[in-house]
């Protein structure tokens, strides 16, 4: 278990160091805007804000409302492409 957590930290370190994490994030953002995920989430935000009132909205409210919905709304194609990239990265660095 300890070894597992250690390995995770090592891999994250690697992702950041190589800049692969940033690249993956850019790719994901572009894909999500492309498929309208962002607009859907924004519309959802609007509902949340109208419900709570413009003055009383906090970041925590938004995050707790948006994150589960956002996770569910990601299209399968985007998810698959991203997992492919991550696997390729892992395989590349496991072989070292």
């Amino acid at each position: 278990m300890n070894k597992d957590a250690q390995m995770r930290a090592v891999i994250n370190q690697k992702l950041i160091e190589t800049g692969e994490r940033e690249r993956l994030k850019d790719l994901l953002r572009a894909k999500l805007i492309e498929c309208g995920w962002r607009d859907q989430l924004k519309a959802h935000c609007k509902d949340v804000i109208n419900e709570k009132g413009l003055e009383h909205v906090t970041v925590d409210d938004l995050v707790s409302e948006i994150t589960p919905k956002g996770r569910a709304l990601v299209p399968d194609s985007v998810k698959k492409e991203l997992l492919q990239r991550i696997r390729a990265f892992l395989a590349q660095h496991a072989s070292l």
């Binding site: 994490r21 935000c45 995050v63 990601v74």
Partner: peptide, 15 residues
């Protein structure tokens, strides 16, 4: 896990 991390990152950014 990495993928979920990335998606949540993006959601956080949007929030």
């Amino acid at each position: 896990d990495i993928y979920t991390d990335l998606v949540e990152d993006t959601c956080l950014g949007l929030s």
